[in-house]
Amino acid sequence: MIDPAKTDATAGADAAAKTRPRSARRKFQFVIAAAVLLCALWAGGWFWANHIATERIAAMKADFVAEGGVIGCDAESLGGFPFKFTLDCAPASLELPSRGLSASVGALEAIALLYNPGHVLASVQGPLALKAPGDLAVQANWTSLQTSIRVGTSRLKRFSAVTDDLTTTISAPADPRLPTAARAKHAELHLLQNHADATALDLAGTVDGFAATIPGAPQLPDLAAQLYATLPGALPELRDGHVDPLPAWLAAGGQVKLGQLGIDIGGFLANASGDLSVARDGVISGKVAIRVDQLEKLPDLAELLHPGSRDRVAQILVPLSAFLKPVQVDGKTWRETTLTIKNGRVSAGFIPLGRLPPLKLGNAAGVAGS
């Protein structure tokens, strides 16, 4: 005998079972349709942005050519779909005959991240051939050269450049004081917006295995150096995509908050920190705390730089040692003192140590004072 209650229950279960797959299929179809729509919108947006980027690059080239410049790029391609834009150019070159400037590299690759506007990465392959006014010519090569730049709405956020195994040869008939060759095992430069002051520029750099050949000077031992400093007022707002920090920095007082300048050359170690200021004529003033180690190596280094200076430097070190107090830093004993710089004249206490030459600031001083 058939039980009507069981029959109704079975029929309801069958209907629910048929409804669930149909509902799940609809949800899955909706997800697929939404994903296809998003992909289509993303692809459309990428190609639209690619078109805009192509137009802007073409406009920049046209402006450069209008100034008399010449841009060379034998194998140019713009791609990177779907998450970035890439510009490849090999080899790449530019010339500006009116200013006596030309440069070429083996290859250039620039990458703009679509999901991070304002961030551009670049990789450059050597060799570099550079010619500048004054018959300055530079030949350089490296195993790796990477750069990164981040720009906010109105100011530079960060610029970084990192290179390995850099070698250069320099020809500068107009200035025989410049090195004729230089090399570095590793070098980094970072320019950052200060986190507490949007108008201040943080400067950080390091170099390892650096050596230079200077005409008429003996070969110095390899040098390693680290630098961290803050320059208040040196990060003005971008104007038409350009920024000139030097006049703005001088107008703000030319201050240098020196966090660290560390040097290791021939076993002689030195670290400096303090506050400095640079006048519009390039003259330096301020106070700097100096820590040194292996001070006995300094006369020999001075002799390499200026033959005949060994005895004089050794004589200065005798009274100077009285002002050097021992300090423990990271388990190492250093000798420390404070140097006073007044209008370029350097002294430790009442002992004069010499004079710092003024910095060459070019036209920046006049621009800052206007």
Rank of each mutant, 00 (worst) to 15 (best):
A174E: 04
H242L: 08
P176Y: 14
T206S: 12
A212R: 14
N194E: 05
D175C: 02
V207Q: 09
T168R: 09
A204I: 03
N194V: 02
A196S: 13
G241D: 07
T169W: 06
L223Y: 13
R183F: 10
P232A: 04
G241F: 09
L231E: 03
V162M: 13
N194M: 08
A212Q: 13
A211N: 14
T199I: 04
A187I: 08
A181E: 00
H242V: 07
P232E: 08
G216P: 05
D175G: 04
D164F: 05
L231Y: 07
P232Y: 10
L189M: 08
D222G: 14
A229G: 04
H190F: 07
L203A: 03
H242A: 12
L223I: 15
A200S: 15
P232N: 13
H186Y: 10
A211H: 03
L192T: 02
T163K: 14
A198N: 14
Y228I: 01
L189N: 01
I214P: 01
D222R: 15
L238G: 01
D175T: 10
T168M: 15
L201S: 04
L238A: 04
L220N: 05
P232D: 01
G216A: 10
T180N: 11
H242R: 10
S171E: 05
P179H: 07
D208Y: 08
A217M: 14
S171D: 00
K185F: 04
D164Y: 09
P173R: 10
G209Y: 15
A198S: 14
A182C: 12
I214N: 03
L191F: 11
A196N: 15
T169V: 02
A200W: 15
R239Q: 13
V162R: 14
R177Q: 05
